[in-house]
Write a protein that binds this DNA or RNA. Structure first.
Lengths: 207, 207
DNA sequence: GTCTATAATGGGATAGAC
DNA sequence: GTCTATCCCATTATAGAC
């Protein structure tokens, strides 16, 4: 399954909103605004204006502003878990699985879903504690993909450090790319950045 | 010079506030509140209450709330630049210099100045653009320490990736430790975490 | 399902007494 | 240098018409 097919499957299961529908469009604009200005500095008027309605009308679709933030996060995690699973399944060796995971996370962070991923990282504290707990459960699913792969490399003697620590270091390193990586300005491609990440860990690119 | 001597030197030069003075105490409480609740969700009433005064009295010390955020960031960078420079000067080889930098940044992020460092990372967008520019200039000084060290390792063939990319990856990885690393809960010491970081890059610990 | 109008609250900042 | 009192404004959310 390619990325488009995965997205369509999730939409038909009602796990993520159709980006062409009213709800999906709002969530997309919300992700952009939350990333650019931060959740607190984005007003419901901003959100409404972004989809061309009045602020009062927003509350027909969502009960509170926070519900919008939560929906952005939940749908983003669902989509990216599916994408990451698919990327990993297509790889054969542990090294290639790790590369696939790094590539997929960089794609999530810097591609189509980049705005929503940045929100997930930087607006975490704006979510109520109850919502945080719900979202954390979803996150655990795809964290396990990483840990299994890193443990395999460790067993093969190709990784010197603790898989748990490495995953957390990589979470920070890869998320942080949203603050500086600008593929459109020429320079490094997404594959190039993936190679650099692997090289930092001592995995030379294949030739 | 040990860390305490460095701090005292900076205080006597008026580059950072005395943590026992009124201003220093407020900045310390502000860092804690900004990290815990975020800048936007922290009110001037919260800030005033944390040091036992009324909100109106705050504006005798700072003209605006944003000025407090900026002061937290500026003083933190000044202190950490000095600490990092000292840590690096004490090391002989490139590998040891890198280890010293990693150790110093982990100490900054997770030690006494940890709250302020977290603010620097997560509240960046709350700073006005003019203030961002000022703070960025200060940051460039210590970024150069990293780049020089990483370039030396690269020249020695001990680092496979681009120094520039590696520094940015490490910025993310090390900053992110504030979200999960809890030294007090037993487990990993700061030196242990430093070793893990080096190991992730293929540098085995000395024995 | 969107509009207009507005309620209700909480925020940053100021003024002047002490 | 801190207090009390308060201004002024922006914000989230609601109500009821269309």
């Amino acid at each position: 399954m390619n990325p488009t097919q995965i997205l369509n499957a999730l939409i038909s299961e009602n796990l993520v909103s159709d980006p062409n529908g009213a709800r999906g469009r709002l969530l997309k604009e919300a992700a952009r605004l939350f990333r650019d200005k931060g959740y607190e500095r984005t007003t419901v008027r901003d959100l409404a204006a972004a989809v061309g309605i009045q602020s009062g009308s927003l509350f027909h679709h969502f009960r509170t502003k926070e519900e919008i933030l939560k929906a952005v996060m939940v749908e983003t995690i669902r989509l990216n878990t599916a994408l990451m699973q698919a990327a990993m399944d297509a790889a054969a060796t542990s090294r290639d699985k790790l590369r696939a995971l790094v590539r997929a996370e960089l794609e999530s962070v810097n591609g189509q879903t980049g705005e929503a991923m940045a929100v997930l990282v930087f607006e975490w504290r704006s979510l109520s504690e109850e919502s945080q707990a719900e979202v954390l459960e979803l996150r655990d699913i795809y964290e396990q993909l990483w840990l299994d792969t890193l443990q395999a490399l460790r067993d093969e003697g190709r990784l010197l450090a603790d898989p748990f620590v490495v995953r957390r270091m990589l979470t920070g390193a890869l998320s942080w790319t949203v603050t500086w990586y600008r593929p459109e300005r020429g320079g490094l491609s997404l594959d190039g950045l993936t190679d650099q990440t692997m090289a930092m860990m001592g995995f030379a690119p294949e030739h």
